[in-house]
Design a protein around this nucleic acid. Structure first.
Length: 456
RNA sequence: GCUCCGGUGGUGUAGCCCGGUCAAACAUACGGGCCUUUCGAGCCCGCGCCCCGGGUUCAAAUCCCGGCCGGAGCACCA
């Protein structure tokens, strides 16, 4: 099995599907997992140097270990060998037609003048091509298929073209690059790929590649194509579109928590297991699917909820004073309801609550969770420490006014507020801000806590 | 337009190959309830689906034909 990305950006949620589905099959059948970088176009889909490692990193993070990593751009001479064989077999030819002109000929189902050139001439032209005797766009190597093929896209497709643009990985070592269809066809054979699982967009690739397999007498791998995923919250996933938005300053970078990349999910505090389960549950349907991130959130919650520590976070805080508080109380609250360990808050007379709760419960008796019951107002009246008969739904979260940390939450939800000083013990972890959402405490910046919004 | 795919609750899947056990399962969403301490979590309950029309058959979500709808590809991109 293989996963073959073009590293023109970091892996997105869409790439994760390919990584996971292929990876799972490898595990299930004890196969061999090859990561192959299809980086054969330095111009239109130019690879990013950093992205190669990003892929490897994210693949490992998702829980898979490649048995082999291949860089197509470093194996170009191999492809030349096979191309030459095809030329010598009369199954490929150097075509000098202009792009538009060939299109017309192709559309008409005719053969161009170069198609039937003598094999010796084609060998010579192919050599000239490799020697750099032609300009960019002047010549291409085409695979002979059938000019009457019902699908015009299949008719004598291009296997090699000339690109005089330096490649991020191999520099100026080559200027005749294979197209994906050719490179992939040869590489799958070389690597002994038995099964190909990939997106539906590559469905026609198989038809083109089968010609090569037939000419060489090879057996084509078993293929399965899945439909495109559309995440409801993000729309269609496209690396190039994302690149534009980042360059335009719409996002901070490839790991901006609002962006659909694997690294952004990692930064938000997703557990890789949740992402795996999510994609396994999506399956391999050939229809286009539109799922909501809610499904991913649900998977993540199952994993994160039993572990995440609870803390109070105050958005739009309102300070109130409790009149008649007999003494300050050391308030102990569980870090997680499933465990015994506690966190401590100072139960003092000046507390912060949210404006929302203040307006909703003003004048009523409510309970500050774990602390005491009060009759709520700007100056509230202390009732008792015991829970008494507080009705359900009237227990709210609060913060001692003298012991808070400023807290900035960024991501899908952006919010400034205050949180317990206790959160510093969970630096780097995902916590649950009660009655708010799960967040990952990223770091301390100067005097405030920077948190990333994970999900509700 | 041409060439291929596909259509199961709101959403995503299982079941289809090898017809009966499917008056259809699971997850998520939604609605309601529970919790002496999160009314944005958790637990419980509920809601709701085989695209349409023919055919084959004792029997069809499953097989066949036609229609409708949706998607992918049609590059010197991957």
């Amino acid at each position: 099995m293989r996963f073959a990305p073009n590293p023109n950006g970091p892996p997105t949620i869409g790439s994760a599907r390919g990584i996971i589905i292929n990876g799972e099959y490898v595990k299930m059948y004890k196969g061999k997992y090859i990561i192959r970088f299809d980086d054969t176009d330095p111009k239109t889909k130019r690879p990013m140097l950093e992205a190669y490692d990003w892929y490897l990193e994210d693949i490992e993070w998702l829980g898979y270990k490649p048995d082999e990593v291949i860089y197509a751009s470093k194996r170009i001479p191999k492809y030349y060998e096979y191309a030459r064989k095809l030329v010598e077999m009369g199954k490929a030819y150097v075509c000098f037609c202009e792009r538009e002109k060939f299109k017309e000929i192709k559309a008409a189902g005719l053969e161009c003048e170069h198609r039937n050139a003598a094999i010796e001439d084609n060998v010579e032209n192919w050599e000239k091509m490799l020697e750099g005797k032609f300009r960019e766009g002047e010549a291409v190597l085409r695979i002979k298929t059938d000019m009457k093929h019902p699908d015009p896209a299949i008719r004598d497709w291009v296997a090699f073209r000339i690109i005089y643009t330096s490649h991020p990985l191999v520099g100026d070592a080559y200027f005749v690059y294979p197209t994906l269809d050719f490179e992939s066809a040869i590489e799958d054979k070389l690597c002994g790929t038995t099964h190909i699982l990939r997106g539906k967009d590559l469905m026609d690739s198989e038809k083109k590649q089968r010609y090569i397999y037939e000419y060489f007498g090879w057996e084509y791998p078993v293929t399965k194509h899945w439909g495109r995923v559309k995440i409801y919250e993000f729309g269609k996933l496209s690396t190039s579109g994302l690149k534009r938005d980042i360059q335009a300053g719409k996002f901070e970078g490839w790991d901006d928590p609002r962006v659909p990349t694997v690294r952004a999910l990692r930064r938000r505090g997703f557990d890789p297991e949740a992402i795996r389960k999510f994609f396994i549950s999506l399956g391999l349907g050939e229809n286009e699917v539109a799922v909501s991130m809610n499904n991913l959130y649900a998977e993540n919650r199952k994993i994160i909820d039993p572990k995440a520590n609870r803390y109070f976070f105050m958005w739009e805080p309102v300070e109130i004073k409790i009149e008649g508080l007999p003494e300050e109380k050391r308030v102990e609250l569980p870090l997680n309801p499933n465990r015994e360990d506690k966190r401590v808050l100072k139960g003092e007379s000046r507390v912060l609550i949210t404006r929302e709760d203040f307006e909703k419960f003003r004048g009523e008796m409510i309970r500050l969770k774990g602390f005491c019951n009060i009759k709520l107002d700007k100056v509230a009246e202390f009732i008792e420490f015991e829970i008494g008969n507080v009705k359900k739904g009237k227990i709210i979260h609060w913060l001692p006014a003298s012991e808070v940390k400023k807290c900035k939450i960024i991501g899908e939800v952006n919010m400034d507020g205050f949180c317990e000083a206790n959160v510093v013990r969970d630096l780097g972890n995902v916590v649950q801000f009660e009655r708010f959402a799960f967040c990952r405490i990223e770091k301390m910046v100067d005097d405030y806590v920077k948190a990333i919004y994970t999900h509700p």
